[in-house]
Amino acid sequence: MSALDLSFFNADLVRQFLWNGFVFSIQLTLVAMAGGILIGTLLALLRLSGRSWLALPAAAYVNTMRSVPLVMVILWFFLLIPFVIGRPLGAEWSAIITFTLFEAAYYSEIMRAGIQSVSRGQVYAGNALGLTYFQTMRLIVLPQAFRNMLPVLLTQTIILFQDTSLVYAIGAYDLLKGFETAGKNFNRPVEAYLLAAAVYFVICYALSSVVKQLQTRIAIAR
């Protein structure tokens, strides 16, 4: 086997093969994060509502999602959706919806812990002012829960970003797929995968440094 040759890697290749995949990976991460936190927060509220007809279905959903490998959820959703809606959904859209629904289960566990980290006294204080249940949640509890859990939410997002590479299973064009395609094109698969690893590493490492800084900042603020 010949020595590593990275000379094929240039701006042109980035533009031609990588940029679109990179944009999609970021989009997928951001949409699944936003949607996942939103749905996850709703699930957490249902689970903490104290009403079993709301809490049990939410718990069942979360536990099911957390017991199934993500790649299977990606595949099943992609394969089953044409039967449900009567036409195929593109791999990209399918991935976005799957990731949002899947990540919601994980974010909901984080938000549940976050809500429980806010003391009962805060709820009393909100209610005593005349705030309704939903106002107390939205204005008092959730902002504190969110702030307390910010490092954990971001850590989950880093994992989410890494997991986006699993969309190779349904052929969506993400960052990894971009590298793979480039590698095939230049007949340099080893170099391409090495570079891919380096890019994922740099992004995730940078993000976890941010998380670390946040953690110390929050620790000081308390």
């Binding site: 003391s119 006294g121 805060q122 009393y124 204080a125 909100g126 209610n127 005593a128 002012l129 005349g130 705030l131 106002q135 204005l139 008092i140 902002p143 504190q144 702030r147």
Partner: peptide, 30 residues
């Protein structure tokens, strides 16, 4: 409840809001 003031042992000010926001939240929202 809005017409009954309550003060707690552990204050229970809202830590994510400024002192002024603590004082105006109920007035504005309720």
């Amino acid at each position: 409840r809005a017409r009954v003031g309550m003060v707690f042992q552990h204050f229970e000010l809202f830590p994510h809001l400024s002192i002024m926001e603590n004082l105006t939240l109920g007035q504005i929202r309720v």
